[in-house]
Design a protein around this nucleic acid. Structure first.
Length: 270
DNA sequence: AATTACGACAACCGCCTCTCA
DNA sequence: TTGAGAGGCGGTTGTCGTAAT
């Protein structure tokens, strides 16, 4: 038997996530935080995805309090500085940048900062003095100028709270999911393949109007924390429903707890 | 206008670490 | 003590949009 992947690649969807999938995942995470594990989540949520993929999608894109978009000069400088100190420990570096994920930092490094770093490091044909001061913001020289929040605990990312101006994409997606549910009265499938318009990356900035609940950030450690070895202990944990726990069941579940989810979201979440 | 090059970023891969039975 | 399973992480690839030619 060959290498066993965590998921059967033949039967699990891969590639870009659709808005529907995002909404389902967001809804499920919100509804069942603190219960179960990532590996069983797709099955229970009716997502034809690998658990790792779900985890990655949530952590890197859907999780509240994430910041997308351009890195600031301060962030660039901090990354360069930290890279000089610890190398490609992206998770550690990301922990110093509230709202940024290791994937974000890594991508940013590979596309932009790496060149700067190499330029700064490269032996210049010109005298070293000219080389060092000409490079825009190299690491070593830059670090004294930084106000890095290094005194913060390394869990900064996990507990980040940028004061409520968060672009809660998950809020949007969740609302979207509820919209889908309501549009499909009985038998509709949230995962309707017809909605294959994979515009899966809506702009991050648009915080949904009206969603102004004082939500605290979600700590990934809070979601599914003591999950190892345990099955997802939720209302859905019905063996009979396991095989068929598709979006319809999820719809029913969500619809039945609409008030709880929407009206008292904060209580659910935190 | 068409083609190419490049940047940005989402997602996947596979190995490593950790936890628990 | 150990093996299996799940999460974590860094490296890499794929895709899309845009600037340059």
């Amino acid at each position: 038997m060959g290498r066993s992947s965590c998921c059967d690649r033949r039967s699990v969807k891969r590639g870009a996530w659709s808005r529907e999938e995002d909404a389902i995942l967001t809804g499920f995470v919100k509804r069942f935080a603190n219960a179960g594990n990532w590996m069983t989540l797709p099955h229970k949520a009716g997502l034809n995805r690998c658990g790792k993929s779900c985890r990655l999608r949530w952590l890197n894109y859907l999780r509240p309090a994430l910041r997308h978009g351009r890195f600031t000069d301060e962030e660039d400088s901090l990354i360069l500085s930290l890279y000089g100190d610890i190398g490609s420990k992206w998770s550690v570096i990301a922990a110093k940048l509230p709202g940024r994920t290791d994937n974000d930092v890594k991508n940013h490094w590979n596309t932009k900062l790496k060149k700067r770093h190499l330029l700064a490091m490269a032996p210049s044909p010109t005298p070293p003095t000219a080389a060092t001061d000409s490079s825009s913001a190299s690491d070593a020289d830059e670090s004294p100028l930084l106000p890095p929040p290094l005194d913060e605990p390394a869990l900064a990312l996990a507990t980040v709270d940028d004061g409520g101006e968060l672009t809660h994409r998950s809020e949007e997606l969740y609302a979207e999911l509820m919209g889908l549910i309501q549009q499909q009265p009985t038998t509709g499938d949230v995962r309707s393949p017809s909605s294959s318009s994979l515009s899966s990356t809506p702009t991050a900035g648009a915080s949904s109007a009206g969603v102004s609940t004082a939500t605290s950030p979600v700590d990934d450690k809070e979601f599914l924390p003591e999950s190892r070895g345990s099955s997802m202990v939720v209302e859905l944990d019905d063996p009979c429903a396991a095989h068929a726990f598709g979006a319809t069941s999820f719809q029913d579940l969500l619809a039945s707890s609409y008030d709880e989810i929407i009206g008292k979201e904060g209580l659910l979440y935190y």
